[in-house]
C-alpha cells in the first residue's frame, strides 16, 4: 500500500522534473535565434485558424444553454434582467477560455503529439539533428509560440460568439428585448472580465503546446507508443488546464 503510494509519487515527481527540463530546453532554444518564422505562421494557421469552427460551435451552444439555464433559475425570483450580464460574465471569465482550451487540447494537443511522436519513431527528429537543425527551435518553439498567440484570439472570438448564442436564445426563445439584452451586456462587462479570460487563454495555449510537444517528443515504440503519447498529451493538458484555471481565477480575482 505505502510502496504503491511511494512509487506513484516518485513517478509523478520524475515526470514533473522531465517536463521542467524539456521546458528549459524549449524556452532557451525558442527565444534565441534562429527563429523559424515560416514554421510559426504555419502553426498559427493549424492551431488557430483551423480550430475556429470547433471553438465557435462550442461557444455558440454553450452561450445558448447558459442563457436558458440562467433564465430558468432567475425567473424564480423575478430577476430575468440579469440573464444578459451573467451570460457575458460566465462566457468571458470562465466558459470561453476553459471550453476553448479543452476543445483545442483535444484537437491540437492530440495532433501535435501524434505528429511529433511519429517523427520521433520514424527517426525524422534524429534526421533533423543530423541536418544541423535544432528540433527544439524548428518543431517545439513554433508550436508553443503559435499556441500562446492564437489561443487568446480564438477565445476573443469565442466570447463574441458565445454572447451571440445567449442573445439569440434570449431574444428568440425566452422573449427578452434585444436592445435591452445588448445594453445590459455592454454596460455590465468590464475590461477586466475580458482580459482575465484572454490571459487564461494564453496560459492554456502554452499548456497545450508544451504537453503535446513533450509527449510526442518522448514517445517510443512504434504505433502503440504514438497512441499512448497522444492520449497522455490530451489528458494531461486537459487536467492542467482545469487546475490552472482554478489557480488563475483565484489569482486574477483575488481582491
Amino acid at each position: 500500500m505505502f510502496a504503491h503510494i511511494g512509487r506513484a509519487t516518485l513517478a509523478l515527481l520524475g515526470e514533473v522534473g522531465r517536463v521542467t527540463l524539456f521546458l528549459k530546453d524549449a524556452l532557451l532554444q525558442g527565444l534565441t535565434p534562429k527563429i523559424f518564422v515560416r514554421q510559426i505562421l504555419e502553426q498559427m494557421m493549424r492551431i488557430g485558424y483551423f480550430s475556429l469552427p470547433v471553438v465557435g460551435l462550442t461557444a455558440f451552444f454553450t452561450g445558448g444553454a447558459l442563457a436558458l439555464q440562467i433564465y430558468l433559475g432567475s425567473s424564480r425570483f423575478n430577476a430575468e434582467s440579469l440573464v444578459a450580464s451573467i451570460v457575458a460574465l460566465g462566457i468571458t471569465r470562465e466558459l470561453g477560455p476553459v471550453l476553448a482550451g479543452l476543445m483545442v487540447a483535444g484537437r491540437v494537443g492530440a495532433s501535435i503529439a501524434a505528429e511529433l511522436g511519429t517523427m520521433r519513431v520514424t527517426e525524422q527528429i534524429d534526421a533533423l539533428v543530423t541536418l544541423a537543425t535544432n528540433p527544439f527551435k524548428y518543431l517545439v518553439a513554433p508550436r508553443i509560440i503559435a499556441a500562446v498567440v492564437t489561443l487568446p484570439i480564438l477565445v476573443g472570438i469565442a466570447d463574441v460568439i458565445g454572447i451571440m448564442g445567449g442573445y439569440i436564445v434570449g431574444t428568440r426563445s425566452i422573449g427578452l428585448n434585444g436592445y435591452a439584452y445588448i445594453r445590459n451586456t455592454a454596460d455590465f462587462l468590464q475590461f477586466n472580465d475580458v482580459s482575465s479570460g484572454l490571459i487564461k487563454a494564453a496560459v492554456f495555449g502554452f499548456i497545450i503546446a508544451v504537453m503535446g510537444c513533450y509527449h510526442g517528443f518522448n514517445s517510443k515504440g512504434g504505433a502503440q507508443g504514438v497512441g499512448r503519447a497522444t492520449t497522455n498529451a490530451v489528458v494531461s493538458s486537459a487536467i492542467l488546464i482545469l487546475a490552472a484555471n482554478f489557480a488563475l481565477t483565484s489569482l486574477l480575482f483575488a481582491d
Binding site: E123, D126, A127, T130, L131, A132
Partner: peptide
Amino acid sequence: YLARFGMLFQGAALFD
C-alpha cells in the same frame, strides 16, 4: 560538427 556529416537512416526518415 554536425554540418560535416551526412546520414542515411534505415527508414529513410524523410520529412513527410
